[in-house]
Design a protein around this nucleic acid. Structure first.
Length: 356
DNA sequence: CTGATGGA
DNA sequence: TCCATCAGG
């Protein structure tokens, strides 16, 4: 789930994106695991059944990735997907916790199906969704066919995306989680891969979800803290590396403690109660000096429509008609927005360099 | 989630 | 053109 900074982020540290085209020309490093997981959880029938091909293999993630990437390219954004590598050892406990939650949800899903409770079934199906290695391989193959670059992170994808944004290779990172801010991403785009209307859980209400950009500089100045302070605040609230956080400390108190004492280490021990030992220094190091790589090239190669059709239609039983229609849109958008072949005038304009 | 469809 | 609804795989 990552660190929950939601309540700490003032409205004036966010820019709501009314039209995706405001990000035209920008390279955005998208948290691939996060995006696929969202598609996998969301693209389901009312009873929770995901989309599947004739062999029973799940295809929700491919459907979401394909159509969303097309929309992103149509808006003129240059996406690069960043995938997780080996999770840090410190994350083992959180990974285990998620596994337990998923298995429990899978049990409740079966119960809800038996009871004919569609709404619960769908909810538990979403909660029990698990992204497999095969799904990630499928996704990478589809991106290759579409000419969209992807980067294999050595460890955390969010750390790698943040690093690429810090270097100026990307304008922003994109994820639903806030972790990339703790990894130092200068800008975080949320809701890039889930715009539209979203149903509130357990309610017959819908909210309009729009993409938003959170600027790290602005966030820090509004909160009146340094970047390292923000990492400390995250640790007090709880991160994937110390999911329980500290007893009785929410956003308000975390901010206050860090401001008063200057760092987690300087906060008097009696104020920091935790059921388990927390290695603050080790966690801090994960955020401040994460394992990342320079071994990537951001190249938007020409799409291979036949390869796209081979994957989606040939292997996964997508409708050829729908895929062809989407590909037409995509190839046009790719030529105009990525290649810059609009009206044959591209040679008059300088190629954009560093982002930001 | 996303695109297609059909009625207002 | 807008929106609600449905199906997609």
């Amino acid at each position: 789930m990552g660190v929950d900074l939601r309540e700490l982020i003032p409205d004036d540290a966010k820019i709501i994106i009314e039209d995706l085209r405001t990000l035209r020309g920008r390279v955005i490093a998208i948290d691939g695991y996060n995006a696929l997981y969202q598609f996998l959880a969301a693209i389901r029938q009312p009873d929770g059944t995901p989309l599947m091909d004739g062999s029973g293999r799940i295809t929700s993630h491919l459907s979401g990735l394909f159509y969303r990437t097309i929309n992103i390219v149509e808006a003129g954004i240059k996406p690069v997907y960043v995938f997780d590598g080996k999770p840090p050892e410190l994350k083992a406990k959180e990974i285990e916790r998620r596994r337990v939650v998923r298995e429990e949800a899978a049990r409740k899903y079966e119960e809800a199906v038996q009871a004919g409770d569609l709404e619960s079934a769908r909810r538990y199906a979403m909660m029990s969704a698990r992204l497999t290695d095969e799904m990630v391989r499928d996704a990478k193959a589809l991106l290759d066919a579409m000419g969209i670059p992807w980067v294999q992170a050595p460890a955390e994808g969010e750390a790698q995306a943040a690093y690429m944004a810090r270097k100026g290779d990307a304008y922003a990172s994109a994820s639903q989680d806030y972790d990339s801010l703790l990894f130092g991403s200068p800008r975080l785009v949320r809701n890039l891969t889930i715009s539209g209307r979203r149903k509130l859980p357990r309610r017959e209400e819908y909210v309009e979800v729009k993409p938003e950009v959170i600027e790290l500089d602005k966030l820090l100045s509004k909160l009146g803290v340094t970047y390292e302070n923000l990492v400390d605040i995250g640790i007090l609230l709880g991160t994937d590396y110390n999911p329980d956080g500290f007893e009785g400390i929410g956003p308000k108190k975390a901010l206050q403690l860090v401001k008063v004492y200057g760092s987690v280490e300087k906060i008097p021990k009696p104020l920091l109660k935790s059921p388990v030992e927390v290695d603050v220094a080790a966690i801090k190091k994960y955020f401040l000096q994460p394992q990342v790589t320079d071994n990537y090239r951001l190249e938007w190669r020409n799409p291979d429509p036949e390869a796209v059709k081979r994957i989606l239609v040939g292997e996964h039983d997508f409708s050829a008609e729908r895929v062809n229609a989407a590909l037409d849109r995509y190839l046009k958008a790719f030529r105009e927005n990525i290649r810059g072949e609009q009206k044959g005038l591209s040679k008059w304009f300088a190629k954009p360099g560093k982002q930001g």
